[in-house]
């Protein structure tokens, strides 16, 4: 039947040298995540170019490395390539040139049918929340666990836990459209984090929210980062970036134009 019915985990995965070909991938795969634990960088872009069609450049020769546990803002004007960067991380797109490595995995070499296992190790948060409309908050969060084949008992334990962590404990029976935008975004963060991914990516998570609500969401993401999760957040929100003083990677027309630690949204012109 479904490949999901087999929930066997394989810990040998971690110690295996990366070059070794996967002979029987289905058996070796950790069904929760493909990301390898280890001290190496969480994300490495090496000369990554993404072309849409033959002429449109999404990203242009970007090389960057993000360590495990970092919090990174991805900034730039509209059309600068932030979403392209994010989508390459979850292999929604493939690089036209160069290599994208996430958690020690060269995504260019990752087979299509392994992509779900990659994504289980990466929490995703989007501007439009991407909640499942017909399901209540509890079910929305539980879905991310159902997907990994978690036992019902584990699901019943983990969901309320994460809902109270994100301040949604009393909302678990509500449908997404019965919540405010900020609350919906909390749900999507809860869903992204319920598997305790080692990498969390957020594409303009505060784009639809007012400044006060945005700060709440930002604090939540920061707390998640403090648990050791690497967070990559694309944003337009100058105030937020300035306030946080985290690493900033700036893109312009697909090119990396700035990469600074403890930085603001824009370079302060002297």
């Amino acid at each position: 039947m479904s490949t999901d019915s087999d929930t066997e985990l394989n810990s040998a995965e971690e110690s295996r040298p990366p070059e070794r070909p996967t002979r029987d991938p289905e058996r070796r795969i950790d069904r929760r995540s493909l990301l390898r634990a280890g001290d190496g960088p969480m994300v490495i872009f090496e000369g990554v170019t993404k072309r849409y069609g033959s002429d449109v450049l999404g990203l242009d020769d970007v090389s960057v490395s993000i360590d495990a546990g970092e919090f990174v803002f991805l900034v730039g004007a509209s059309g600068s390539g932030k979403s392209t960067f994010i989508r390459l991380l979850i292999k929604e797109l493939d690089a036209s040139e160069g290599t994208v490595t996430v958690g020690g995995r060269d995504l260019g070499k990752l087979r299509r049918n392994k992509v779900p296992y990659l994504r289980r190790g990466i929490g995703c948060v989007f501007q439009d929340f991407k909640l499942l409309p017909g399901r209540n908050i509890y079910e929305n969060v539980a879905y991310a666990l159902e997907v990994t084949g978690d036992a019902p008992r584990a699901i019943r334990r983990k969901v309320p836990e994460i809902l109270s962590l994100t301040g949604l404990a009393d909302k678990s029976d509500r449908l997404p459209d019965e919540l405010s935008g900020g609350e919906q975004q909390r749900v999507s963060i809860a869903r992204a984090f319920v598997n305790h991914p080692r990498l969390l990516i957020a594409d303009e998570p505060t784009g639809n929210l007012d400044p006060d609500t945005s700060i709440g969401i930002m604090q939540l993401l920061y707390r998640i980062n403090r648990t050791g999760t690497t967070v990559v957040m694309a944003t337009h929100d100058r105030e937020l970036v300035d306030k946080m003083q985290m690493r900033v990677i700036a893109l312009e027309n697909g090119r990396l134009v700035r990469d600074e630690r403890k930085a603001s949204y824009a370079t302060v012109e002297p």
Partner: peptide
């Protein structure tokens, strides 16, 4: 579903 890592058969 794809984004949260559901396999095709799931």
């Amino acid at each position: 579903m794809r984004l949260v890592g559901a396999t095709n058969w799931f």
